[in-house]
Amino acid sequence: MNFKEIQELIKLVGRSDLAEFKMKDGEFELSIRTKFYNAGRQQVVQTMAPAPATLPAPIASAPAPAPAPQAGNTEAAPAPKSAETAPKSDKKYLEIKSPIVGTFYRSSSPDKPAYVKVGDRVEAGNVVCIIEAMKLFNEIESEITGTIVKVMVDDAQPVEYDQVLFLLEA
């Protein structure tokens, strides 16, 4: 999704009554919260995947939250209250954490595919990454079963003890 499409999307969400909009396409995730997000209880979270290449139609069919007075602001796209690329510590997700301090690798060598990617089903006992610590190469096995929804660390980045590496959905 390019910048212009994101801009269009923000406009569209801004004009709607939505409090929050989330979409996911492979590893690309987008979350938009509008001025309605903090107004009262959390309303509707619309999640869609995979995303169409063009502007998503499902917005129109998104269940409407409680109506709120809409400001007649048309000269500029209403800015979202906040936009983030990932659910931060959403408790509905399961976590795979780092047992050691080291460097996170998604594959066993640069020319090999990643052990797991977003959307993959992981069984307990499957290797999900390597953490290299002072030249010790540690394959990390999942203890849980679920589907990868987010890889929290970029390849070849340092990780700390207990840092969350993957989010999974049961």
Partner: peptide, 14 residues
């Protein structure tokens, strides 16, 4: 040279 390769699940060394 040494190359040490481990498998770890959670906090248990395999």
């Amino acid at each position: 040279g040494l190359l040490i390769q481990n498998t770890i699940a959670g906090n248990r060394w395999q």
